[in-house]
């Protein structure tokens, strides 16, 4: 069984100028990029190409594998099924049409443009996120979130959740394996009882997991207390962003805004 965090953080310790950047800069620029992508009008192919080149250059610079990033970013593709409807609902020039009894399906050029735009935007946004997570330690990201004034409680919960995520998923996987081991079935026959029964088994597993998680959190809390936890989560390194970093962030955001603006102007 692959340890999930190794799968997740495979390239996190690589060295590149991008890895060395402050997490706040990387987070803000990624956010700017994703917002800019969302703001683009349908069919702004030049702007999409510009953003794609920016992302791909950064991915290349970060040595995290261009092809791998592109492939992994297909995660959101199943959701595109929802967007297929764009093909047939936009008024525009007719490209293709079929009749099924009373219904008529007509694909228009505007529909195709809208559909492809959504697909490309989604694909690029996922790549930007993958890039961010591949070059930023999660702990750094959490610190960045705290420095960007997210409520400390929220950041602390995220931190604890990340820390125990792998323990709890290992626990869940052990439970799943145990269920498999005790679910013998004759070949060609379904294992287990009715769907309700199967759901009840899973429900009891969830309940067991809840109790184990709860008891673990009590132990964690006691361990924290015995190490002097007094209710405040403190952290070192509260350095403000340097003028260079501020400038870089602003410049990047402005550039993204300019591309969006230009695509409305000339699109």
């Amino acid at each position: 069984m692959a340890t999930p965090h190794l799968l997740l953080d495979r390239y996190i310790d690589a060295e590149s100028p991008l890895h060395a950047q402050d997490a706040r800069v990387k987070l803000l620029l990624t956010l700017a990029l994703v917002v800019a992508l969302a703001l683009l009008p349908a069919g702004a192919w030049v702007a999409l190409l510009v953003f794609a080149l920016i992302i791909w250059t950064a991915v290349y610079q970060a040595h995290i594998g261009l092809l791998r990033t592109m492939r992994r970013s297909l995660v959101a593709l199943p959701f595109a099924l929802v967007a297929v409807t764009l093909l047939i609902t936009r008024p525009g020039e007719l490209l293709l049409s079929w009749s099924f009894g009373p219904w008529r399906l007509a694909i228009t050029d505007a529909g195709v443009t809208a559909f492809l735009s959504v697909l490309v935007k989604s694909w690029l946004s996922v790549q930007a996120m993958l890039l961010l997570m591949s070059i930023t330690h999660f702990a750094d990201l959490l610190r960045a979130l705290r420095q960007l004034r997210l409520p400390p409680v929220l950041v602390a919960i995220l931190g604890f959740a990340y820390r125990y995520l792998f323990i709890m998923t290992d626990e869940a996987q052990r439970m799943l394996r145990a269920r498999e081991c005790r679910s013998a079935a004759l070949p060609g026959q379904p294992a287990g009882g009715s769907i309700t029964w199967r759901a009840a088994v899973v429900g009891r597993m969830v309940g067991t997991l809840f109790i184990r998680a709860y008891e673990r959190s009590e132990r964690v809390y006691v361990a924290m207390l015995s190490r002097g936890f007094n209710g405040n989560l403190v952290s070192l390194d509260e350095r403000p962003l340097s003028p260079n970093e501020r400038g870089f962030t602003l410049l990047g955001t402005a550039a993204a805004a300019a591309v969006v603006w230009a695509s409305y102007l000339f699109g």
């Binding site: 125990y164 995520l165 997991l209 989560l233």
Partner: peptide, 23 residues
């Protein structure tokens, strides 16, 4: 109280892992 912070963190991990349990 502050005791809830580790509790909620671990509970988030629990929900996440609980979503893996399927039938």
């Amino acid at each position: 109280n502050e005791r809830q912070v580790p509790l909620m963190g671990v509970m988030a991990a629990f929900i996440f892992a609980g979503q893996m349990l399927n039938f």
